[in-house]
Design a binder for these strands. Structure first.
Length: 273
DNA sequence: GTGACCACCTGGCCGC
DNA sequence: TGCGGCCAGGTGGTCA
């Protein structure tokens, strides 16, 4: 389940292999994957454009082409694989890009949640999903005052508030649990009840957690793998997520699991009162 | 404006 | 062994 560190890991690997190369053909086998424009238009527009740069915004992979930006959201299980030209289409491979007429880049998504958009460069500010996104975790503007302002009318649990991409972008369910554990904050605490020092702790631990996860190449839980099937190692450093019934690494109390807004939430009831 | 809920989607797991 | 039902979860849409 790709979050920011996994998106960065995948983007780096794609950049290494695809920078300055040309998309010579494209086939779409499951049309809803293409969020904008129509799949027919997507195919015709993307052909013969060179991939000039790779970056991320929130959980989106941003590929700068000649005339457009190709935006890819992996959602739950989107993955990229390289294959030789005219390779047999494997199960759950929904979009195939031919690169330099030499090899293929396959987008696989078992659950079909992933999305791609092709946005003209001159329309990126009005049409991209970025307008709805909040601050990146490393943004200098991410301060306790910023969060206090965003949370002032939020009575929802902090667990839910941190998943709100319009406030901080890039945090998903796994790192949310880890950040709150490191911050000794109960995930059910209403977001508007947190004081400056707690908000500062959240910011600090968000950066620590994501930096460490990026260093480890992301987290492999269930079946997330990055491009070329590379698996991340951060799951070896998780403190509470998926650790239900195990001892808290801090106090030894048993880690419990509850549901908050439909999301599985793991925490230590003693450390995170 | 806010928050709760649902749909999307499939594979894995569990109980019967 | 086979079947049905539940769970996982990021995002966008709907409704109260």
């Amino acid at each position: 389940m790709p979050e920011k560190p996994e998106v960065i890991t995948v983007t780096k690997k794609l950049e290494k292999r695809l920078l300055n190369r040309k998309i010579t053909d494209c086939k779409v086998y499951y049309e809803p994957i293409i969020g904008y424009p129509s799949s027919k238009e997507f195919i015709s527009k993307i052909k013969n454009q060179t991939m000039n740069s790779f970056s991320t915004r929130g959980k989106w992979i941003v590929i700068e082409l000649d005339r457009d930006y190709l935006l890819v959201h992996l959602r739950m299980e989107g993955k990229f694989f390289f294959r030789e030209k005219n390779a047999i289409l494997e199960k759950h491979h929904h979009v195939v890009f031919t690169i330099d007429n030499e090899e293929e880049l396959h987008f696989q998504d078992v659950r079909k949640f992933g999305r791609m958009k092709l946005i003209p460069k001159d329309k990126i500010n009005e049409m991209s999903p970025f307008t709805e996104l909040g601050l990146e975790p490393w943004d200098k503007s991410l301060t306790p005052d910023y969060l206090k302002d965003k949370f002032k009318n939020k009575k929802i649990p902090i667990k839910t508030a941190l998943l709100d991409q319009s406030i901080i972008t890039g945090i998903g369910n796994i790192y949310d649990d880890e950040i709150l554990f490191l911050s000794h904050i109960n995930p059910l605490t209403p977001a508007n009840k947190l004081n400056d020092s707690k908000l500062q702790l959240i910011i600090k631990n968000t950066i620590i957690t994501l930096d460490k996860a990026i260093e480890e190449g992301g987290t492999t839980i269930r079946n997330y793998t990055s491009e070329e099937g590379v698996t991340g190692l951060f799951q070896n450093h998780l403190y509470v997520h998926t650790k239900v019934g195990e001892a808290c690494p801090n106090c030894g109390e048993t880690i419990i699991k509850i549901k908050i807004n439909g999301r599985g939430t793991y925490y230590c009831p003693k450390c995170q009162k």
